[in-house]
Structure formats: structure tokens, C-alpha cells
Design a protein around this nucleic acid. Sequence first.
DNA 1: TAGTGGTCTAGACCACTGT
DNA 2: CAGTGGTCTAGACCACTAG
Lengths: 248, 248
Amino acid sequence: MVARYELIADELRGEILSGVHPVGSQLPSESELAARHGAARGTVRQAVAVLAAEGLVGSRQGARRIVLGTARSQSFAELHSFAEWARANGYRYGGQVIAQRRRPPTPAEAARLGSGEVLDVLRLRTLEDEPVLLERTAYAEWIAGAVEKLPPGCGSVTEALYESAGLVFAYGEHLIDAVPASTRDARLLGVRRGSPLLRQRRVTTTHEGRAVECSDDRYRAGSVAFSIRNSIGANPLVRHAGDLRFGA
Amino acid sequence: MVARYELIADELRGEILSGVHPVGSQLPSESELAARHGAARGTVRQAVAVLAAEGLVGSRQGARRIVLGTARSQSFAELHSFAEWARANGYRYGGQVIAQRRRPPTPAEAARLGSGEVLDVLRLRTLEDEPVLLERTAYAEWIAGAVEKLPPGCGSVTEALYESAGLVFAYGEHLIDAVPASTRDARLLGVRRGSPLLRQRRVTTTHEGRAVECSDDRYRAGSVAFSIRNSIGANPLVRHAGDLRFGA
DNA sequence: TAGTGGTCTAGACCACTGT
DNA sequence: CAGTGGTCTAGACCACTAG
């Protein structure tokens, strides 16, 4: 069942991407869109709210909505899963488990995943056959068994866990900063020790709020960048001083 | 005029932060909240939509909403303006113009700011009296005059431009990655050459979609991190390969 | 099956924009 | 001033969850 407002949003998005409403131009008024689609104004407002959340259009009270751009923010899956992002963008990608063991959680991990043992996995991911990402992930005990059953060359852990355990990653919290490569990082990624790495630390939970994993992902400089579009009305990105929330 | 749904959202947020609704617990149903506040259900839905956008609560059709966390995403202003972010978090901060001149735009800047001359400003920002951020900003010609009138030790450029020119930054596009410090970066920030810097490149526009500035901001490693909360439903962050959209 | 959130309607009034 | 988006109401039906 596809909602009415989604259909209207899709049609408007198509018109924006195809140039019917060029960047900088005004969108039709809500009343006009409502009449055209035979829908109530509230439904049209839901549709344009979708486009506003995607950063395509902006609005000010009293004035027509304006087309801001054509670049669309992508899905949660693309942020969470390296494989899904790479495939969606047409890149060749791969992955290999370098080390895997159970161990007691650090205090920071225990606070998020519970006090049971965690499964610590070190994975090296490649893009276009070049090593670009080193993933250090601690899985909560309740999912560790399913992770251990995955093949070491598994391309997409997210998809494999969905298929084998029905696990859906639903919410994420991410901290992004820059760190120098350690000796081991440098060797695995093929860079010099101390050279810049883009670090993404994250905690992911199911939609029930159950924590699944804590991860420390390090990208080789120049291989990947993170992009954000925001507006004065709403944005999800926050700057933090130092190393606050993820512990040592 | 404060909207009704904002008041309801504020009250609910306060109850979440103060522990009335602990993390993992269920929120009251929409009908109950509507009855309690004497408001229509639609108004209550607007209120909880605010909390969902902040990442505080999650929802699934048919089940009660669940409290996901207590960390709140901050405003656009805090992402855009170093000074506003620093002040909101109680840090001592400062800034100093190191160099300022007019020059022709690079091709990438011309595509965004127009083909007129740009005003190129190099600023060093401090946090707790330590140099942490090097800002290289190209202002569009139409705002350059107002920027040149600012004092070189101006703490908040965003606020000063609002007061002197009525300028409101409304939309931003940001690319975040890691780069090694150049010789000049290193000297100004007090780090070794080649050491990691967290880079934020951004383009900011007014709410009419008029581009104001392109900037390349570099943070000393360890001084600042960016934080993002997202959900499977919506998120604004995208990963990019290499150096795509901002040109050379 | 009862309760909940997701969607939708058809109105209404207000604040703001642009002419 | 007319037109527009922002807010709000009081209903309705449906899809889904949970007991």
C-alpha cells in the first residue's frame, strides 16, 4: 500500500529532477496542487514536507515554495552499510575478516551493549580493489552467534544478518572525526603511519531500541567523504569538542 | 507566537530529559496526549514528529512510541557558526583574520557564487585559547562589502552579518573528510606537517537560494567531532567517494 | 480483538509576503 | 489587499501490533 502523499511527492520530485521546476523557481501553491490531484491540502503538505526533508525545496510563510536543488539525500542503509552504499553507486567492493574473537566489553561498550561478552571483529573493506576502510566492530552477545556463522569474505554483513537472523538495523548514532593511522592501521590500509584517517564511530540499534553493535570505522584519506545538506529549520548534525561520548 | 505543538513537544522533551519517560520506555498514546492537552490528535502528531526528527523517539505502526535517547540534535546555526556552537556549549572562543583579499573565483566557486570577484578570507579560530580551526572562506561579490567592514577580530561573522546586512544563512551543503596539514596549516594550528585535520567544506545560501559563501574549514584532530543521529526512515548524510562535488 | 499509529478529509483562522 | 503557507480542529478509515 503506497500512501497518496508519497505518490504526489514522487511526481513533484520527478518534475524537479526533469527540469519542469528548475532550481530557483517557484512550486505551485498548495491549493493548486490539491486541486490538481483531487486531494486535501493536508495531504499535499505531507508530500512537500517529504521534499523539504530531502533538501529539494525550501519554504517561508507567505511566499511560494522555492526549488533549492536536485541532489537527494540517500537512505539510512547507505550510511549504515558500506556494501549497500558501494553497490548503489556502482563501485566494485569487497571485504575480509582479519581477526575475530570474543572478549569482555570495555566500560563504554558495556554501557551500550550490556555487560555480557562482545564479539570483536576486524574487517578490511576494499573499493575498486583498493583497501579503503578498516572496521572494528563489537557485536552485542545476543547477535554474536549469528555473526560468527557468516563467511569471512562476506560482502554485506547487514544483508547477511537480515537474511539469517531477521535483523534490521533501524537507528544509528555516529561520531565523525580525524585521527592519525596507527602502525597496524597503516599496514592494513597501505598508508604511512600517522597519516590522516577519517573515523566514523557508531552505535546501531534495532527499531525497538535494542543495541546491536558499536563500531570504529577508519577510512583512508581521499577515499570517502561524508555529505550533509541542512536547513535553518532542521538538521541532525552536531559538533562535539574532544572525545566526549564514546569513552576512551 | 509560539505554536501549540511546540509547547507540547517542549513538555514531552522535558519529561524525557528529566527521566519521567526513561530510555526504552513507551510514550503515552496520541489519544491520551491529545486528551491531556485538550488538543486535536493532529496537533499531538506534529509535536511527536518534532521529537522523532530530533532522534529522541522512534515509532512503528500499531505499537506505542519508544524513547530512544536523550541526546538532542542542535540547530542549523550551531552547525554553521563556530561562535554560536561554542557559546551554546560554554566554551571560550575567539577569531582573527589572518589574510583577506579579493580575487577571481576558481571554476568551482564561479559555478556556485557567480563569476564576479570573490572575497577570500583566512581566519584562525580558537577554543579555550588554543588554535583549533582554520577557515578559508570565499564570499560572493554581493556580500563582500559587508564582510570587509567587519573588524578583524570579529567573534561571530554570522551574527555580525545579520546585524549589519540583515543576512540570514538558511541552507547549507557540507562535505566532511580528513586531510593532512599543509606547511601553512601546520604552522597556524600548531601541529606537525602532515598530521590529520578534519575538513568541512561547505556552501551556504540564503532562504531564497542565493549562494553566500564557499568555505574550507580545517579542525585540528582531537579538537572537534561531528555527530549524527539517523533512522531507517530518514537521514541526511551521504557518503561520497573521492573528491566529487567541490572541484579541485 | 482492542488499541495504536498512519493516512486522509474538509473545513477554519492566523501570520506573513508581495503588489 | 489578495494569496500563500503555518497552525489547528474533529472527525474518518485503514494497517499493524500485541495480548
